[in-house]
Computed example of a mutant assay.
Amino acid sequence: MSDIRRDSARRGIPLRALVPNAVTALALCFGLTGMRFAIGGEWERALGSIIIAAVLDGIDGRIARLLKGETRFGAELDSLSDVIAFGVSPAIILYLWSLQHLPQFGWIFSLAHAVCCALRLARFNANIDAVEQPHKSAGFLTGIPAPGGAALLFLPMYLWLWTGNALFSETWLVAPWAALVAFLMISSLATYSWSALKPRRGIRLEVILVVALLGGALISAPWATLTVVAILYLATIPFSIRGYARVRRLRAAQQDAA
């Protein structure tokens, strides 16, 4: 048995796992690049970098499953990348954009986002091998995911870039919003897992059409589109909570019947 373990250690990461891990590392690079643009005051490029990081984060797991290259190393790398790309970088960007103008307390709100993102991912890693995961088994997430948290955190920036109204950069508006998003990340609220959604066969063409139109809208009017998407995502949370409560009632009824 020891010889087998030594051979496995010598082989290291399987070749099929290199591609998804490289995509994860690329997402990390884009997250850090967002901070670099924010330091220079290039807000649109800063947000664009985080958005690209989120897209890459969304496909690396699917690439790993497609290539059968899922490894524990990849899972750990993905979490570390998420902490930086969707926790640290958005916190710095928001601080440089608005929260630095809130004396003493602005940095605390930025820290809250980064720390809550790290806590969420630590909770995820701690439960990754758990047998009992009620939310996951029902097709839900616990709290909002790290990329979703970063996307929601930037909602005031989307509105500011879209409308040009300086009101949306005011610290009295941005600070409580950052606190709310931080809470949603570490909360126990059931939220929809998009990977668990399976459109019915009869509406798949319509789904493709919506995705194509969404892509076109992101290119032609990115900040207005992202504003609408963020608001719609927030609107799904009450429905996901109600949906999970219904699942819990059905499970309880089945247990009573058994």
Rank of each mutant, 00 (worst) to 15 (best):
A138R: 04
H113T: 02
V228K: 02
A182Q: 00
I144D: 05
R65F: 09
T142E: 10
I92C: 12
N165V: 07
Y95W: 06
L155A: 10
I92F: 13
L111D: 11
G48V: 07
L32G: 10
F109S: 04
A166T: 07
T163G: 08
G40V: 15
R248Y: 01
N21C: 00
C117Y: 06
C116G: 00
N125G: 08
G74S: 00
D7T: 11
K136Y: 14
R204K: 07
F86Y: 08
L189C: 06
N125L: 09
V228R: 06
S8H: 11
A224H: 04
L214K: 07
G164P: 04
S79Q: 09
W97T: 15
V247P: 00
K198P: 06
E132R: 13
R72M: 13
P176D: 10
C117R: 03
S220T: 13
L119R: 15
V210H: 04
M35R: 07
L80C: 01
R72H: 13
S79Y: 01
I13A: 09
S2M: 13
L161Q: 04
Q255Y: 12
L102Y: 02
W223G: 09
I51F: 14
A85T: 13
T142D: 10
I4D: 13
S81G: 08
R10L: 14
A230H: 03
S8P: 05
G148R: 00
R62P: 05
G148Y: 00
L47Y: 04
A75E: 08
S220F: 14
A46V: 07
A253H: 07
L153V: 04
I186V: 06
A130L: 05
G58Q: 03
R200F: 14
L152D: 00
L15T: 11
M157Q: 09
V115I: 14
I39V: 15
R72A: 15
G215Y: 06
S193H: 05
I108V: 15
T163V: 08
A253Y: 04
C117I: 05
I237W: 02
S8D: 11
L232I: 03
F30Q: 03
A182K: 04
C117V: 04
W223D: 03
R242I: 10
D7S: 09
R65M: 02
G106I: 03
T171Q: 03
L28C: 06
A25W: 00
L94F: 12
V174T: 04
W107R: 12
T227Q: 03
R36N: 11
G41K: 09
A138M: 01
L189K: 08
A196T: 08
A235M: 09
I237R: 03
F109L: 08
V131W: 05
A166D: 08
A253E: 13
A151P: 06
F239I: 10
K68E: 12
S2A: 14
V55M: 09
P145I: 00
M1N: 13
F183W: 14
L197I: 07
C29L: 12
L153H: 03
A75S: 07
A38Q: 01
L99Y: 06
I128A: 02
C117A: 10
P103W: 01
L18V: 13
F105C: 10
A212H: 09
